[in-house]
Design a protein around this nucleic acid. Structure first.
Length: 306
DNA sequence: CGAATTTGACCTGCGC
DNA sequence: GCGCAGGTCAAATTCG
């Protein structure tokens, strides 16, 4: 029996208020029910918490990997959004119907921020690096009323991709960042982080690639004019590390993760054999290796023990 | 040396 | 019309 504790933390900020979904326990449990088939089953509670509504899916479309009709959630976070907020966003969306240009004129500057479809998330510093998309920083501006500057990123995976991301440290909550996604990716999500040029790769302390850590530390220097910050060292706690790296797992790709979260209609279970067919457990082993080498933990302390 | 980041300049929208 | 604030560009710089 193994138990994985998914302490997902996510907050979605509406235009005028914020909602917290902290401390929701998504705890899939393995049930070894049959001799030749083993199933990973999810509690009703988790399923209920996880699937808020179809509207949520609609809201997250900009961050889906759309490929052959299959959708996959972006790796960074899974957020629970109250219906009032969703409706608000949808209303906004309806008002902001994109009109195809009738001429060849291409405006040099995009529409104002509040005219675009956007999703605002509040993430922990650890969650920032679990975004699978490749982002390239193209600007940084001080924001009035905030002691911290806002960083502007564009998708670097595809040249013509209009997807944008803004990252701004929260001035009210230390250690959290307000991330705003704008526009949609016009391409599929990169299959592996290693193939990404730039900033987002493994964040294990002993990883060869230290860009993400370095970048965030740099941001801290810039964004902490008063020298006060709570996450200078990125806080590689085993708990947050496990969560983030788990989200990085190649799910081989869409069906497994869909099945994991949805289960089948009959028994809400997914065959472990199916999971072995993909990279699922290969990914877990990577996590395990990284985890044990980084923190000197053995199997008994690691959440995934076989 | 190529790619990513930094940063000042520039552009646009909005409120007055 | 003017000024401010937010968003983007692009040359310079840094990094691997």
């Amino acid at each position: 029996m193994m138990i994985m504790d998914w302490g997902l933390q996510a907050v979605v900020i509406g235009s005028s208020s914020s909602y917290s979904a902290n401390n929701i326990d998504f705890s899939p449990k393995l049930d070894f029910q049959e001799s030749d088939h083993q199933y990973l089953s999810f509690s009703h509670e988790m399923k209920k918490e996880f699937f808020i509504s179809d509207e949520l899916e609609e809201l997250y479309k900009p961050f889906y990997h759309v490929d052959g009709g299959q959708n996959m959630l972006m790796g960074s976070s899974i957020s629970l959004i109250p219906k009032e907020i969703i409706k608000e966003e949808k209303r906004e969306e309806e008002q902001q119907q994109v009109v195809a240009p009738t001429s060849t004129y291409v405006p040099k500057y995009k529409k104002r921020k509040n005219e675009q479809k956007r999703v605002v998330l509040q993430l922990k510093a650890d969650d920032l690096s679990s975004d699978k998309w490749a982002w390239r920083k193209y600007g940084q501006k001080p924001i009035k009323g905030s002691p911290y500057p806002r960083s502007y990123y564009r998708c670097s995976s595809s040249k013509g991709c209009l997807a944008r991301k803004q990252v701004e440290q929260s001035c009210t909550e230390n250690g959290t960042f307000i991330v705003t996604y704008t526009a949609e990716h016009n391409h599929s999500q990169p299959t592996r982080r290693n193939s990404l040029a730039g900033t987002i790769k493994s964040k294990f302390p002993n990883s060869k690639n230290t860009n993400i850590k370095k970048n965030i530390v740099k941001d801290e220097k810039i964004s902490s004019p008063h020298g006060s910050t709570s996450n200078n060292n990125l806080g590689f706690s085993p708990e947050t590390l496990m969560i983030d790296e788990f989200q990085e797992i190649e799910m081989n790709d869409h069906e497994e993760i869909k099945n994991m979260f949805e289960g089948s209609d009959e028994n809400e279970c997914v065959s472990i054999q199916e999971m072995f067919d993909g990279d699922f457990f290969a990914g877990l082993e990577d996590i395990h290796d990284g985890f044990t080498s980084s923190f000197g933990c053995n199997n008994s302390t690691f959440p995934f023990s076989f």
